[in-house]
Amino acid sequence: MKKTVAVLVAMLLASAMFPVASMAGDAYPSKPITGVVPFGPGGSTDLLARTVEKFWTKYSKEPLVIVNKPGGGGVVGTEGVVRSKPDGYTLYFGYGSGHDVVMPSLQKMPYDPLKDLVPVARLSIHSVVIVTGANSQFHSIKDMVAWAKKEGKPITTAVSVKAGAVDLALTAFGKAAGIKIVTVPFSGGAEATTALAGGHLMIGGGHPCEIMTHIKAGRFRPLAVALPQRDPSLPDVPTLRELGFDVATWGSIKGVAAPVGTPKEVVAYLGGTLKKITEDPGFRKAMADMNMPVMYEGSADFGKFLKQATADYLALIRKLNITIN
């Protein structure tokens, strides 16, 4: 009896001491940093984070370890970061995704994505590209709008998920063009892309990193980009504004954040390290291979940008009168 109690006490002490032992000592970072991706492995955010992980040790003495905490459309993992200790050892990868900038306008959140997180840096923007199958009769947005108006028929559109960045952009486009766009939500970008590749829907929307293989294979034809400016990964594709439709969204933003209260010098260190990584030729090539444009912004600029993006999405949702009841 006594022996077991003694052993138990020893165990308790041992597990209590682990964090203490590693925290004592020199300047930040003194132990590996955890990067939380609130989505599953293999998704675009995961790929981005893993690529950063690969180059991280080149510029920092402690490694970055990426962990996936999917669930609740990203909310569960992000909330985990929000509730973690603001010591710079728990970061959130994917800041600016749908559940940060779109979801708060549609439903109650367990935290405030703008107030409870400190932006560290923006890494990339995944724009919304409107595409059609290669066998489609539509060769341009103009063709499509003319057809829809003449026939009076709806355009069936594959989108990754209801009320996500792609769905919003295409719904907004339908309204601006005065045609009926029926968005058909799938369970994620891969499913939507597969259905469109099979020619089961007329058009579709997606992020370049999801659809570029099909564009290069000639299975998809890109028609327009729903960004304010052209997407660096698709420089030949016009924006909707250029085509005369006043529709622009921010797509899905991919940045890094830390819990609010993280010391300024830690945020600066992290932002600086990420800046060096985004300038690394190896990193830029890896990103180009995955069709993710590198669009770095430091903490202050990124913070302003996110506020603007959130406000823009809120305005768009109000305008389109989208609700999730």
Partner: peptide, 24 residues
Amino acid sequence: LGIPGNASIAMIFAALLIKGVTPG
């Protein structure tokens, strides 16, 4: 085609992408 049909294959897809190889 570059289409991952299930969760396990999707992860192999990701591993290849990180290695700079795009299946398709």
